[in-house]
């Protein structure tokens, strides 16, 4: 492969760990989502036994679905950036900022604004705008995505808290309340919305030119550009979609909590990145789709729900999540692509 610096190195796996990880990775990826489905069944099986069946109760399953919805939406937004070969760490900042926007513009206790249902396109637009800025920083200013999105996160988070003065803004009579909190045939609406979003994005990935370009860039950016792919445009668009989805997630979160505060955005990044990795989307890019991201979110939520039911120390839960992230990444990254890993 004519990749400048990284191609010529001999691929040395000096430790057995990394050799078996390579084998494990091939199995993990080649199987599409069958590996993940198997993992989900195993996880649920373990917890069902551990909780003596309580895990599989209708109530708990509904809880899992409803808890998994928002991380799934975020993961679907995030994973496309990862497929490109970049990373988007701006989740928390974008969500915080969009939540505050919701607080200010929807019918609330602090001011007379009430944009009604317009809040949906507004939030989506603000999130999308932030995403586009991420894309521009990465393509035009050539700042590596992990710093530019991290920086954006801090900038937006700070703005969010500054604008809201750190306070909680209660929402009043939000028209979306019934939608966000309701159920249809026992399935939480949010889960249905998440499913719809997954279906749309998966369709776009499978059946549009944009989907081809997304995977081409992730596979080999230089060759794609040479073949005529408009790399910058596609990247900006991908970051933009991610932002839109974060914005929508923020809206749903705010409505669900019936209030808007900047810290709503906290602790969303880690589960999202874990969901993406566990779902089988390789950090090195070019592999994995919306189904992987959504399924990954489901697995992570199912795992954490089980841990809670089993009364595991909440702080140990974070440790488990950390370990799962590291293992999932180790299994999915393509080491040949990275050459010398930094």
């Amino acid at each position: 492969m004519p990749n400048t610096v990284t191609s010529m190195l001999p691929h040395r796996s000096t430790s057995w760990l990394s050799t078996s990880a390579t084998k494990g990775r091939k199995w993990f990826q080649r199987s599409g989502i069958s590996g993940q489905l198997l993992a989900l069944i195993i996880v649920m099986g373990i917890f069902t036994i551990g909780t003596r069946g309580k895990y599989l109760s209708l109530v708990n399953l509904q809880v899992i679905l409803s808890l998994a919805a928002i991380p799934a939406i975020i993961a679907i937004g995030l994973h496309q950036v990862v497929v490109l070969g970049a990373i988007d760490l701006s989740v928390e900042g974008v969500v915080a900022f969009c939540v505050v926007i919701v607080g200010f513009l929807a019918h609330n206790k602090f001011n007379a604004n009430d944009v009604g249902l317009w809040i949906i396109p507004i939030t989506a637009g603000v999130g999308g705008g932030a995403g586009v800025i991420n894309g521009l920083l990465n393509t035009k200013l050539k700042i590596p995505s992990f710093i530019s999105t991290l920086g954006m996160s801090w900038v937006l988070w700070g703005l969010a808290v500054f604008v809201s003065k750190g306070q909680t803004i209660p929402l009043l009579n939000n028209p979306l309340r019934a939608v966000v909190n309701g159920y249809v045939l026992g399935i939480p609406n949010l889960a249905i919305i998440a499913f719809l979003i997954f279906a749309i994005i998966q369709l776009v990935q499978d059946r549009t030119r944009f989907g081809r370009y997304l995977y081409a860039i992730g596979g080999d950016e230089v060759l794609s550009a040479q073949a005529g792919v408009k790399v910058h445009q596609t990247k900006i668009f991908v970051f933009g979609i991610a932002g839109v989805l974060y914005g929508l997630a923020a809206l749903f979160l705010a409505v669900k909590l019936d209030s808007a505060q900047a810290i709503t955005g906290n602790n969303l990044l880690f589960p999202a990145v874990t969901a993406v990795a566990v779902g089988g989307v390789a950090l090195t890019g070019g592999i994995g789709g919306a189904k992987n991201a959504a399924l990954g979110a489901l697995i992570v939520t199912a795992l954490n729900d089980g841990l809670i039911l089993l009364d595991v120390n909440p702080y140990a839960q974070q440790a488990v999540n950390g370990a799962v992230l590291v293992v999932a990444v180790a299994l999915t990254i393509d080491r040949k692509k990275l050459g010398f890993i930094k």
């Binding site: 081409a216 596979g219 060759l223 073949a227 070019g286």
Partner: peptide, 15 residues
């Protein structure tokens, strides 16, 4: 010059 992770068909018609 083909993108490795895309299929034969996708590479044929890329762009």
């Amino acid at each position: 010059c083909l993108v490795p992770n895309l299929s034969i068909m996708e590479n044929l018609f890329l762009c």
